[in-house]
């Protein structure tokens, strides 16, 4: 080893090799990112070119028509929003409560583990299966018919495991020292959960909830299988009303032979994407808002 160099030849070669690997990996990762984003951008630009000219106030507030130029999307847009609202109202309280029970109250025994494994499995069950369950349970057995309520109940089942899992994740991230601090002051379990654990976990719970609902809003298969109509000429006027949703309407337009309806489908996709992006933006905003309040 010489006095001037920090390392001898062998070590220097090893370092050079590691730096090359470092750089190569970075380049590869960047390439993959460009590929993924590029295809997404290409897709959106394509849809935008096809559908942008159809976007108008009349399109948003209009109803389906045999003539493509007159057709609107309000029936499906309002259907989607109503279904998601009801889905959230059903799934969020049940999901959050289940997660609180599993994470904070239940004993770590065999039963708890079986339930845990099943919830994880349910999150991966294909949505069409939920659709068939909804058809048998809500539409037929419970006599809800092909209503908004039946559709929302089916979607609620579908997103329930996702909400439970993400809520548990959020609860688990709350430091145990906070719980100990609360118990040491004579707090009950419920007081500890309600006043200390939930507020800290809230940003994570909200994010999980909105991501789950974003999944539900794009679902088509379970709603088709419970018989959500593919041609509805009116906006839903209540929980028992027949309905359609954006993905079904888009599917309907895409499957028509006329080119004009393809433009309608593209415009419908843009509306659905806008709705999704709005929901995701809301998730981010809520998360940041509540995190700021904490620090």
């Amino acid at each position: 080893m010489t006095g001037t160099s920090l390392a001898d030849g062998g070590v220097q070669r090893a370092i050079a090799r590691r730096r090359f690997l470092d750089l190569a990996f970075q380049a590869l990762a960047l390439l993959i990112l460009i590929l993924a984003l590029g295809s997404l951008i290409a897709l959106i630009t394509d849809v935008w070119r096809d559908g942008f000219s159809r976007l108008s106030w009349d399109f948003l507030t209009g109803f389906p028509s045999r003539r493509a130029a007159n057709a609107g999307i309000w029936h499906a847009l309002s259907g989607s929003m109503l279904v998601i609202l009801v889905t959230g109202t059903l799934a969020v309280p049940i999901g959050v409560a289940s997660a609180i029970y599993l994470e904070e109250y239940s004993r770590r025994n065999l039963m708890a583990r079986i339930i845990e494994i099943n919830i994880t499995n349910l999150a991966a069950v294909p949505s069409i299966i939920y659709g068939l369950l909804g058809l048998g349970l809500f539409v037929r057995a419970m006599g809800m018919g092909r209503s908004v309520l039946a559709g929302a109940s089916t979607l609620a089942l579908l997103v329930l495991p996702v909400i439970i899992l993400s809520t548990r994740e959020a609860l688990r991230a709350v430091p145990p020292s906070i719980r100990e601090g609360s118990y040491a002051l004579g707090a009950t379990k419920w007081q500890t959960v309600w006043y200390q654990v939930l507020p800290i976990a809230l940003p994570g719970i909200l994010t999980g909830m909105i991501l789950a609902l974003s999944r539900a809003i794009g679902e088509t298969a379970p709603l088709i299988s419970i018989g959500a109509l593919t041609f509805v000429a009116f906006a839903p006027d209540g929980l028992w009303s027949p309905f359609t949703v954006l993905p079904i309407q888009i599917f309907n337009w895409v499957s028509r032979p006329q080119v004009e309806f393809q433009a309608n489908a593209a415009a419908g996709i843009l509306v659905l994407l806008a709705l999704l992006l709005t929901m995701n933006a809301a998730a981010i905003w809520l998360r940041d808002h509540y995190q700021k309040k904490l620090s």
Binding site: P175, I178, S182, A184, L185, G186, A187, Q191, Y195, L294
Partner: peptide, 30 residues
């Protein structure tokens, strides 16, 4: 019992709330 036998931990664990609310918490829940 825990109300009567207070505890201070090795790692300070203030709640992520205001100074006032940290103290008031025990009073409120009890």
């Amino acid at each position: 019992l825990r109300r009567r036998v207070g505890m201070v931990f090795q790692k300070s664990n203030p709640f992520p709330k205001s100074i006032f609310d940290n103290i008031a918490y025990g009073l409120r829940i009890n």
